[in-house]
Nucleic acid binder design. Structure first.
Lengths: 201, 201
DNA sequence: GGAGCACCGGGACATTTGTCATGACTGGCT
DNA sequence: AGCCAGTCATGACAAATGTCCCGGTGCTCC
């Protein structure tokens, strides 16, 4: 019996997946959590064989949770399940020690198959996405550029960002300008869009 | 037997819902579509009792599809199913003749119950959301303000927008300024955010 | 026949944003 | 030691943005 931990914040998706996976003869969902920061503590008590993690979750992202599991429960295989096939997500998932990366596309049957395959030691990765991740390359943004761009993305003015990050306004402008240049865009809005699209944010 | 048409673009959610609804004794998913503009044509051939529509879909939104069904197949009840509980979405859904509005939260069991209730002639609406929709009120933006704000939201500069919408740059600035004022925000990014959050975009 | 509103545009203005050159400090790498 | 990248900062400048006037057109409603 394969013991699965399911982390997914959207209620309907969570309950649907749990029901459908339980229908499989060899799979048992032993725990479901709705927040990223609940993954590791719960996993430590229920000891699942596979953790199925959404990326966008409150508390902590699935990628952070994956890194936590690698350190805290190395025997547990991590399968990332996400809505968005962002190249940067895949890259970060692999760096966090994930064994598989699936997009919430394609039928649910694939999911059970993927669970069995990661448990058998295989890596499960969408080939289209893998190619995109390789072609897009790694994020060109430095940590600070990412911070500043993320802050700018939700409408903060230069002065707001400078206060939030304890930087001078000039510095913020420089980082923002660098981010715009590196993303090949023309303003902060476009820069934030492409960064998000590539999973760099 | 309740005949259901399911419109949902995300593969995993679509197949999961279809499977689970088919497990119900009195419900049968007679058609699934992945695009908003497929809803009406398919519905006209399969004649479902209930249409379960996602809002965010390629081709046409679920709200547009709902309006199309009201005109083309008035006997068919429309149940909107969406990720985002935006007040404006609910309002527009009701205006498009929807019989119910559900958020993709809460368990899947609710869905089957909602289907039976709309078929019985009831309106099914999340009470929390209904209150939010009433308190938020209708969109203060005029058509043009919405157009301009939507264009600005994905990074277009004033000059880009003026070309795209065949307006003078002065006019674009005026509309944008009006949108910022009406949303009570400080720049186009914040304005776009709150407009999106309220379902005004 | 006003009053009100959505629409479209112009001009002037202050503010914000983005660019560029420059420099200091740090830590890592060779 | 020299070199490079990342971090933080200044100042100056051009360009874009946002605000506030103003004017005109149509349309609807009372």
């Amino acid at each position: 019996m394969i013991k699965v931990l399911l982390a997914e914040d959207q209620g309907m998706m969570r309950s649907a997946l749990a029901l459908l996976l339980d229908l499989e003869d060899d799979i048992e969902v032993v725990a479901t959590v709705t927040r990223g920061d609940e993954v590791v503590p719960v996993a430590l008590t229920v000891r699942p064989d596979v953790a199925l993690l959404d990326i966008e979750m409150p508390g902590a992202s699935g990628l952070e949770a994956a890194a936590g599991l690698r350190d805290g429960l190395p025997g547990c295989k991590v399968l990332i399940l996400t809505t968005f096939g962002r190249p940067g997500y895949l890259r970060r998932a692999m760096e966090a020690g994930a064994a598989g990366f699936m997009v919430k596309d394609g039928p649910v049957e694939d999911l059970a198959a993927a669970i069995r395959r990661v448990l058998a030691g295989e890596k499960v990765i969408d080939p289209v996405l893998a190619a995109a991740a390789l072609s897009t390359g790694t994020s060109p943004l430095t940590d600070r550029e990412r911070d500043v761009l993320a802050a700018a993305a939700d409408g903060a003015a230069i002065s707001d960002i400078s206060r939030r990050l304890h930087l001078s306004e000039s510095t913020v402008r420089n980082y923002l300008s660098a981010a715009i240049g590196k993303t090949g865009t023309r303003n902060r809005i476009e820069a934030a869009r492409t960064a998000r699209h590539n999973g760099w944010l």
